[in-house]
Design a protein around this nucleic acid. Sequence first.
RNA 1: GCUGCCAUAGUUUAAUGGAUAAAACGAGAGUUUCCUAAACUCUAGAUCUAGGUUCGAUUCCUAGUGGCAGCACCA
Length: 561
Amino acid sequence: MEKVIKQAIETALETLKIEGVHFVVEHPTDKNTEADYFSNVALAAAKLVGKPPREVAEQILDVMGAVSQVEKMEVAGPGFLNFYLSRNFFTEKIAAAAEAGPEWGKSATWSGKEVVVEYTDPNPFKEFHIGHLFTNAVGESIARLFMFSGADTKRVNYQGDVGLHVAHALWGIRKLESITGESKSLTLTPEVLGKAYALGATAYKNEEESAVEEIRAINKAVYERSDEAINQLYDLGRKVSLEYFETIYEMVDTQFDEYFFESEAGPRGKELVESHSNVFPESDGARVFKGEEYGLHTRVFLNKEGLPTYEAKELALAKMKEERLGAYDHSVISTANEITEYFKVLKKAMSFVYPELAAKTEHIGHGMVRLSSGKMSSRTGDVIAAKDFVAEVAQAAEQKLSEPNQQLATDIAIAAIKYATLKGSILQDSVFDKEKALSFDGDSGPYLQYTYARICSVLTKAAEAGIGASTENAPIEAYAIEKLVYQFPEVVEAALAERAPHKVTHYLTELAGAFNSFYAQEKIADSTDEYAPYKAAIAGAVRQTLKNGLWILGIKAPERM
RNA sequence: GCUGCCAUAGUUUAAUGGAUAAAACGAGAGUUUCCUAAACUCUAGAUCUAGGUUCGAUUCCUAGUGGCAGCACCA
């Protein structure tokens, strides 16, 4: 709609022979105007024309003529043009939302394009903690935004199954075995792995006697698969970790199309670095990329021992994605922002090795999860396991349910957590506040779910009373809620364009709030009310909007709670 | 020390150079013989500091202050 208005203004400007004006057409944020759209065109043009803004605004209005679906236009404030949409426009959109169903809000912006979205990226042998939950929620919503815009979206997960952290854990397992003295009976569980990792990482960091040397040796052995005992321990630990991760992906409703592992990317990366010696010169026994020449940092791609680092693996990964998923048009990698600087270097290096892939690769760095006590660290064991956290929130949710339902409680818990993650800009760190996560009042995931369930319930009641949704007989004045429903497609588009899922969260909260006010004031399932079918149609449109919006956020919409 | 990101009610967050800065939690006062009170209604409460650009700055620029991250063989 804003495009229609914008076009009309541009035509008017041409008539007035005013050129080169940059202006916007947007929804007013100001609560004291009832206008649906406004434009600052007159303010922007005033200086060019050399007349007061209000006068320019009047001139534009004079030559503009009627705009379809716009009922009223006026000059307001310092010289804004305000546009009021016709009653009919809102009615049509209410009908359109219900009719489109699951398609409501979708666009064709990325239609026919393949987009690969990589996210979550946990490391086997390490704990899957609430930071991974954060990164998963962000990546999932970005992927779903792409899906909503018509892209053939591939969701991928890249898991670090080799590297020093693995050696830390393996070393730790042996240490634990020697402590308990039960070398064969130590059962590997995710908990044991977490403990073992912390033990190894601390020993390495503190340069405990022989630990550094042993860990490095284990690391090399893992890469080369040269030690049968280590291979066995490694294979088992990897399996335990990956199976454990699967249970989490199911819980958060993420399905990956493809998994990549560092163990596969490693050799490929090494090969790439070695075959591009002009890009990766030797320095101090390592192979590096000299980022300084481009205002970046120099980073090691192959260490002294000839082992590939994160950077080298990621380089190979870009190509592997193409090999397995086909030629993609765009590749998104979402990680915490501690990787951001490395990625700049990586992308520069990639532009020499795979220029066409580098051009299509985008890194989205998001904030970190912080505990009130400080940064989480799996090295010191100071982490909150994702599973424990979800279980705790789910337990609080279950207490509010009328009858026990563990699945529903978990879905509510996931909603609470994802909402908290996606309510604000993903760039910001999020301080993990347990009290807050356990509270389901006010703007929260459960609030949106509750509103959805409530609508389902009232529509059932309406149907029982013989009220079928219809937009045929509309009240003269549009309800406030109607002026929000039609904005959904615009919001989704903006959220994708700006890589800002929180725009969807914010909008849904506003929508739910407006609906709850509407619900408190108007009786919907009232068969004596001539507008009951219209109100039911509104409820239906809001229900569809909430459902589609929640889907984008990766939150389930239960019909009862 | 250098580089990057960030700074908005007591707290967690909105606002793409536009009109009286928007919500929620928390605080205070109300609403259920009525479709789910995980709800609704009302009240009080904020742009880190100093300059600059602009008709207009939370938004852009400069400097400062504070927080976080990164600064070569971890990811």
